[in-house]
Simulated scan of single mutants.
Amino acid sequence: MLIKLLFILFTLGYSVQDKIELNHPNIILSGIENQFKISVLDSSIIPFNLLIEDKLYAIQKLERKINHTFSNTGLRKVYIEKIGIKTEIDGLNVIPGFLSILPPIIAILMALITRQVIPSLFLGIWVGAFTINGLFFKSIFSGFLNTFDVYIIEALVPLDGSSGHATIIMFSMMLGGMIGIITKNGGARGIVKLITKWSNNSSRGQLSAAIFGTVFFIDDYANTLIVGNTIKPLTDKLRISREKLAYIVDSTAAPIACVALISTWIGYEVGLINDSIAILGLENYSGYGIFLQS
């Protein structure tokens, strides 16, 4: 009995971290249920208790999933307990739950105050990175660096090598530049002058915006940039609020692109359908055909 007890003490105190894997979310918020997965690599230490805060979870098999809601914030240590002996296996940084809405609030407020979207978004990301890194003084600087190398660079060029986000940004920048050239050349004024003869009141002005949004269905980003900038002088002249114009443009951008027969959105949706067809082994079916029948 004494030899067995000494063996257990040796196992717990010396190499217990190598015998247990604790998988948990990268970001842990207080007041929100978090799921943990415990994998025991050595069955000789079973059974034991997992101690998180003041709550014990009995571990009696090699794998178990538990849900725990943290009531306190800061560094929370996780222990295993066996025959009254506690051994620390991990330390978790728990962030106050309400801080999860702080980055978007700061970004929106700064955008309203400064009327500069990109710096405001950057500040919001920085605050989020600072929060995730632990709310320490040093996290201000590490969060600033992570804003670039993790949340901006990896978002543009993911580790898997895909270029979807970068392509969208480049497409939007090129499209915005083209619209700027057309506007400077008087193209937007020409369109407004052409439709002003018919759109001579608020109702017809809003209808014109909706028609333009429906016609430019090839891409939702292009729709937003083209229709918004083209119709804006007309709606300003007819005293239609910018908020109402934004609502009309948004209502006729992605919704129309998603149901049009040909658009960039349809290409994306058909690609997802084709991936599912390949997984299910339905070689006789066409992704576009399924889309048309759905």
Rank of each mutant, 00 (worst) to 15 (best):
R189C: 00
Q17Y: 01
T147Q: 06
V249D: 01
I153W: 14
L9P: 00
N72I: 10
L156Q: 07
V94F: 11
C258P: 01
L159Q: 13
I273W: 04
A254Q: 02
S208K: 03
L12W: 08
G97M: 09
V40K: 08
N133P: 00
E154H: 14
V157F: 15
G228H: 00
I248Y: 06
R242F: 00
L280N: 08
I52L: 15
M178Q: 10
N201S: 13
K232Q: 05
I290Y: 06
S44W: 08
F217G: 10
S241D: 12
W126H: 07
S43P: 03
F36V: 01
S44E: 08
I28F: 14
M110C: 12
G164R: 05
I101Q: 04
N49M: 04
I290N: 11
T73D: 12
V227H: 06
G124R: 06
M1P: 05
L135A: 04
G128E: 02
H24M: 14
I218W: 15
D219T: 07
L282H: 03
Q116L: 09
L207I: 04
L121D: 04
G161P: 06
M170D: 02
S120C: 11
I20N: 06
S162T: 09
C258F: 15
M173H: 06
G177Q: 09
I38L: 15
L51S: 07
N284P: 01
G31N: 09
L225F: 06
N185D: 05
G205I: 01
I152A: 12
S71R: 15
D42Q: 04
I125H: 03
E81G: 10
E63R: 00
L75Y: 10
L280H: 01
R76C: 11
I248M: 11
R239I: 01
L50S: 11
N200R: 11
I248P: 04
G128D: 05
S100K: 11
A278M: 00
R76N: 13
G124I: 07
F144H: 02
Q206E: 15
L50Y: 02
G143Q: 02
D275L: 13
V150F: 10
E269T: 10
Y221W: 11
L99K: 11
Y288W: 12
T196K: 14
S276F: 04
V127G: 10
T69S: 13
R76L: 11
T230K: 06
A188F: 04
G31E: 07
T114E: 07
L109F: 11
I101M: 14
E88K: 13
R189L: 01
N223H: 09
K232H: 00
I277Y: 03
L62A: 08
F212Q: 12
T224E: 03
A166R: 12
L280C: 01
